[in-house]
Simulated scan of single mutants.
Amino acid sequence: MASPPPTISTQIVRHIRDCLELAGVPSAKLLDQYGIAPDEVDNRDHAVPLAAYVRFFEAAAETSGNQHFGMHAARLMGADGLGPLSFLFLSAPSLGQAFQTFTEHLDALQESTFNAFVIDNKTSHFSYSIRDDVLTPRRQDSEYSIGVMYNLTRRYLGGQTAPVEVHFEHERVGALSWYESYFDCPVYFEQSQNRLYLSVDLLNRGSTALSTELFPIIAGHLKARMHGHSHSLTTVERVSDILISNAPDNLPSLELVAKSLSCSRATLMRRLNAEGERFGNLVTERRIGHARQLLTSSNRSIADIALACGYAEAASFTRSFQKQLGLAPAKWRKINSKLTSARRTAASRPTS
């Protein structure tokens, strides 16, 4: 039996809808166009398909004429914008714990999403991406999500911070100065992940926003809310997450992945085989998935994309891509560019 499609809470969809209405654009017809029942968006206990949300978000930006709609929506999000997840973050005993618990509970609001918080020697980073590479373009969601984490961090610290740098997986749209003014730091595009980098010196600071006494209460509520629909990650999912967290042109070997999972190379191969998968296939999926992102969200040449995805030359990339998707990269890009253009045209039609 096929798994149901991943969903996202109406808590998030409602804020995007409200921002669209605030921009003077009626939302009901646009929501309905993407299969979201307008009257269900106000129900806090409902969820909508993740794919519908992503497409609605892109259409909202097009219809409003605001190319930075997602980042404006992030800036307008209140302290309750993510419901209990916002309060969990803002009441955590330290900023480091705020990020760590946020990543552990995001599934309560949004499924099929990779997010991680990693601490290095001098910097830490929060990573975010939607696992399904078919969902493109998704620039608005990516910029909104990183923008939300940036604004939550500022609210937690009382506005006394700036990131070290910000990364986005898509191509830049608009002036670089606009992004760098928004985040008050260098911003880089066409990266392997959407990431917010922070100095480790900030991680031990406490909240200026909410009492830490709320933290265990909210954590308990979210744990109970997740009970029943959360599940232990399969070996395939755990390996995929390790690959997602690394750049496609510098993926870890089978031996390194096995070590990070505290098992031997042979054990990892056996576990993957028991789930009907091979390590090489997961590596290819990671590389081709990133290629799809670059093909739809950038104007980079096929040769450049091949190198960015870990292929030594364009010919081997083309063969691998065609084997996976049945089309050469150039033809796939052309077809999907037409589909994206058609969606934008439909979204830009007047709503009444």
Rank of each mutant, 00 (worst) to 15 (best):
G35I: 13
G78M: 06
M77H: 08
A37Q: 12
S86F: 03
F56H: 04
P84A: 03
H68T: 09
H46F: 10
E58G: 01
T103A: 10
H68F: 13
G78I: 00
A37I: 09
F87Q: 04
S91G: 09
R75C: 10
A73V: 09
S94L: 07
M77V: 04
G35Y: 00
A74E: 03
F57R: 03
D32E: 10
A60T: 10
F99M: 05
I36D: 04
A52S: 10
L95P: 10
Q100L: 15
Y53V: 01
E104I: 03
A47M: 15
Q100A: 14
D45W: 11
F57V: 14
G65C: 10
G65Y: 06
A51V: 07
R44T: 15
G83S: 03
L82H: 06
F87K: 14
F99Q: 06
G65F: 01
G35K: 14
L90F: 11
F102Q: 05
A74D: 05
Q97L: 13
V48A: 10
M71D: 05
D39H: 08
F56G: 05
D45Y: 11
L82V: 00
I36N: 00
S64D: 15
V48L: 05
Q33D: 14
N66Q: 12
F57D: 02
G81S: 08
G96L: 01
N66I: 06
A52N: 13
A73P: 09
L50R: 12
Y34W: 01
I36T: 09
A51I: 12
P38S: 06
F89W: 04
Q33R: 06
F56D: 03
A52L: 06
D32Q: 14
G81N: 01
R55S: 14
A98D: 14
L85E: 00
A74I: 09
V41A: 13
G70H: 15
S86I: 04
G65S: 05
H105T: 00
L88G: 14
L30V: 08
Q97S: 11
V41F: 06
R55T: 13
A98L: 01
P93C: 08
P49K: 13
H68N: 08
H105G: 02
T101F: 07
